Simulated scan of single mutants.
Amino acid sequence: MSIGKILVVLTDSEKNDFLPETLQKELSAITPEIKWLNPDFINEHGWDDALSSIKPEVLVTGWQTPRLPEAPQKYMGSGLKYVCHLPGSVRKLVPRSWIEAGLIVTNWGRSVSHVVAECGLMLMIAGLRRAGYWNSAMHRNGAWKGPDLDTRSLFGKKVGIHGFGAISSCLVRLLEPFDVQVSTYSPAVPDAILNEFGVSRSPSLEALFSENQVIVELASLTPQTEGIVTETLLRSIPDGGLFVNLGRGAVVDEAALARVCSEGNLHAALDVYTVEPLAGDSPLRRLDNVLLLPHIGGPTVDQRRTAGAYGVSNIKRFSRGEAMEAIVNLEIYDRST
Results as ranks from 00 to 15, higher is better:
Pro238Asn: 07
Pro238Trp: 04
Pro238Tyr: 06
Asp239Thr: 13
Asp239Asn: 14
Gly240Pro: 12
Gly240Arg: 13
Gly240Met: 09
Gly241Glu: 00
Gly241Ala: 00
Leu242Met: 07
Leu242Arg: 01
Phe243Leu: 00
Phe243Val: 01
Val244His: 05
Val244Gln: 00
Asn245Gly: 10
Asn245Leu: 06
Leu246Cys: 09
Gly247Thr: 02
Gly247Tyr: 05
Gly247Gln: 02
Arg248Asp: 11
Gly249Tyr: 10
Gly249Ser: 09
Gly249Gln: 07
Gly249Ile: 03
Gly249Val: 07
Gly249His: 10
Gly249Asp: 11
Val251Gln: 02
Val251Trp: 06
Val252Gly: 01
Asp253Ala: 13
Asp253Phe: 06
Glu254Met: 14
Ala255Gln: 15
Ala255Asp: 15
Ala255Gly: 14
Ala256Ser: 13
Ala256Ile: 02
Ala256Thr: 01
Leu257Pro: 08
Ala258Pro: 12
Ala258Tyr: 03
Arg259Gln: 13
Arg259Gly: 00
Arg259Phe: 06
Val260Met: 02
Cys261Trp: 08
Cys261Pro: 10
Ser262Thr: 09
Ser262Gln: 12
Glu263Arg: 13
Glu263Ile: 00
Glu263Met: 07
Asn265Arg: 15
Leu266Gln: 03
Leu266Lys: 01
His267Cys: 14
Ala268Trp: 06
Ala269Val: 05
Ala269Ile: 04
Ala269Lys: 06
Leu270Glu: 01
Val272Pro: 10
Tyr273Cys: 12
Thr274Gln: 13
Val275His: 14
Val275Arg: 14
Glu276Cys: 10
Glu276Pro: 11
Pro277Lys: 09
Pro277Gly: 12
Pro277Trp: 13
Pro277Val: 05
Ala279Gly: 14
Ala279Arg: 13
Asp281Met: 00
Ser282Trp: 07
Ser282Arg: 04
Ser282Ile: 10
Ser282Asn: 10
Pro283Tyr: 07
Pro283Gly: 08
Leu284Val: 03
Arg286Ser: 15
Arg286Trp: 00
Leu287Ile: 08
Asp288Val: 00
Asp288Tyr: 01
Asp288Pro: 09
Asn289Ile: 04
Asn289Glu: 07
Asn289Leu: 04
Asn289Cys: 04
Leu291Thr: 11
Leu292Asn: 06
Leu293Arg: 11
Pro294His: 02
His295Pro: 10
His295Ser: 11
His295Arg: 09
His295Ile: 00
His295Met: 03
His295Tyr: 12
Gly297Val: 04
Gly297Trp: 01
Gly297Lys: 01
Gly297Leu: 07
Gly298Leu: 03
Gly298Trp: 04
Gly298Cys: 03
Gly298Val: 03
Pro299Asn: 06
Asp302Ile: 02
Asp302His: 12
Asp302Gly: 00
Asp302Arg: 05
Arg304Ala: 04
Arg305Gln: 15
Arg305Leu: 12
Thr306Trp: 12
Ala307Asn: 10
Ala307Trp: 00
Gly308Leu: 02
Ala309Pro: 04
Tyr310Arg: 01
Tyr310Glu: 12
Gly311Val: 07
Gly311Phe: 05
Val312Pro: 09
Val312Ala: 11
Ser313Glu: 15
Ser313Ala: 15
Asn314Met: 08
Ile315Ser: 09
Ile315Ala: 11
Lys316Tyr: 08
Arg317Trp: 05
Phe318Ser: 05
Ser319Gly: 08
Arg320Cys: 11
Gly321Val: 05
Gly321Asp: 13
Gly321Asn: 12
Gly321Glu: 09
Glu322Cys: 06
Met324Glu: 08
Met324Gly: 10
